[in-house]
């Protein structure tokens, strides 16, 4: 690879998913993050109950993310061939876990807040 700038990376990801889906994914990620920041500021505290539930979804998010990538790329877990591969898998799992937790937490606080007041 000749030069790895942010511009190149964006261009590559755009080609990977198609420009429409890529920007839709970016928008979704931004929206969820914005929602999450919004509820953090709005509530000025963490809803412990929702946070716990969100944490319970972390393993699910991790497994789903790894499964998705493996299925999309004709790969199996036995293809892990070195430390860097393990780091990539753990990274994907980590992203899936954190992303899943944020999604679940934000959804709970945004839409089910009245039913479950903060602890």
């Amino acid at each position: 690879m000749k030069e790895l700038t942010l511009e190149t990376l964006i261009a590559v990801f755009q080609e990977m998913f198609g420009a429409g889906l890529f920007w839709a994914l970016v928008a979704a990620a931004l929206l969820i993050t914005a929602g999450w920041i919004y509820v953090l500021f709005r509530d000025r505290s963490l809803g412990m109950r929702q946070f716990l539930i969100a944490q319970l979804f972390m393993p699910l998010g991790a497994v789903l993310a790894v499964w998705f990538v493996m299925a999309m790329t004709d790969s199996r877990l036995s293809d892990i061939g070195g430390p860097v591969d393990l780091i990539v898998v753990l990274g994907i799992a980590g992203l899936g876990a954190v992303g899943g937790a944020i999604l679940v937490y934000t959804t709970e606080r945004l839409f089910f807040r009245k039913a479950t007041p903060p602890a």
Binding site: M1, M16, T73, S75, I80, G81, G82
Partner: peptide, 17 residues
């Protein structure tokens, strides 16, 4: 080294690049 990440380069990143 035979690596999964290098496979990802070929299968996912190469066409995009």
């Amino acid at each position: 080294e035979e690596l999964w990440i290098s496979w990802l380069m070929k299968e996912v990143a190469l066409k995009a690049t």
